[in-house]
Design a protein around this nucleic acid. Sequence first.
DNA 1: CCCGCTGTTTGATCGAACGCAAAGAGCAGC
DNA 2: GCTGCTCTTTGCGTTCGATCAAACAGCGGG
Lengths: 231, 231
Amino acid sequence: MPLQDDLDFLSRTGLFGGLAPDALEVIAARATPRLVRARQAVFRQGGEPTHLHLVTKGWVKIGHVTGSGAPLTIRIMEPGDVPGCVAVFRRTPYPATATAIVDSRLLTWPTTAVGELMERYPRISANALEMVGGRTEEMLHRSREFATEPVERRIARVLLRLVTQAGQPVGEGMEVSFPLSRQDIAEMAGTTLHTVSRTLRMWERSGLVAGGRQRVVIRNEKGLRAVTAGD
Amino acid sequence: MPLQDDLDFLSRTGLFGGLAPDALEVIAARATPRLVRARQAVFRQGGEPTHLHLVTKGWVKIGHVTGSGAPLTIRIMEPGDVPGCVAVFRRTPYPATATAIVDSRLLTWPTTAVGELMERYPRISANALEMVGGRTEEMLHRSREFATEPVERRIARVLLRLVTQAGQPVGEGMEVSFPLSRQDIAEMAGTTLHTVSRTLRMWERSGLVAGGRQRVVIRNEKGLRAVTAGD
DNA sequence: CCCGCTGTTTGATCGAACGCAAAGAGCAGC
DNA sequence: GCTGCTCTTTGCGTTCGATCAAACAGCGGG
């Protein structure tokens, strides 16, 4: 575990940003690294939050299964993100399951240690409030989309969000840098893989995107953005 | 402004609960009461949050208008609630407009005072985190509903939520204690007033609810709950 | 190299819910 | 009491998107 790297990393996260170097050292000293293989769960919906998790490498999918069995993907977490943080702060069961998309690395702190650290360094509290507040606005935004926007626009938004978050340049455009099936997109857009496939195929014909097995390439971001227009 | 009443009231709110009496006095001393007439705005979407607002009496509707003009009601705030708190804590523009449904009374604090009070009484920070976290989970829940549930079920949920929050017993059941049009319900359920009217009419025929102009009475809560079943 | 698995495409059908239109009904003001 | 306004109900046609069904394609393992 390369400690210095972790310190630098911590100082650039939303939760621990703005803290003094010595504080970061104290924080890092209490962290335990954890490796999670692709497709393995980091934590499960309904479980008690025993640890705070911080992604340092890889991608983690936050998914929720409704009582009626409909799967829904809430968001993808990237390095620096803190999946399940709301549940940890509130000591309530995780509302969703976190799954590593690729082999990923996380830092973890026992929930009790988090409370202590927050008392000792109030800046963490302030950061947490900022972070959770951002999450709230994001979810508000999301529910607004689901409530008022047609499927096509929601799919476009999902792709734009993903490419902004995890886009890497490739010959013909920007590619989402982790495996992403039509089913995954459907779960993020609140629709079925059939509709996603049809829509993507249509956009492929008009040159907006390019596809492949578990691959999506955005070829014309501006064009996609036009699809989401109206807001 | 009945100060002692306000102190008692503050101690029972989510934001200021658990604070020492002398702290509450300091807090109350910095508050300014504000009366807002029915249908008047408390604050507007896009505006800068200059004050923190706490509802002490009445009902406040949090509504959002999308870029495409579709109105959406996010929730109804009751006494003890802090509309717009996320925006105040994050110092970002209000994401929604707050409108008094009936003549209402609020307490307000300048945003700067809120920062000072939070530093002086860390418990407020903790409460805020708890409160915002709850808001996040609520929004998550909401977006899940919009993404996966059929309209009928969403309408049933809206009614149940309202009657739980603001139900008062009336001859044949529980009545929502403020004026509530079909349009309002539609904006909360993410549908049109036509569909709401049809659905309510159907339920009225089967004895689940009773209606009237801007009035809704739940006559069979259990039956309504059955409609939402599946989660 | 072939087989089987998983993921993708596509067609056909069906139904929920929206949009449009118009007619009732409660309420307030004059 | 009449008038006008807002809110509600209801009918009808249409559309979007889900569901069912089936073929197709990339990829890994034997």
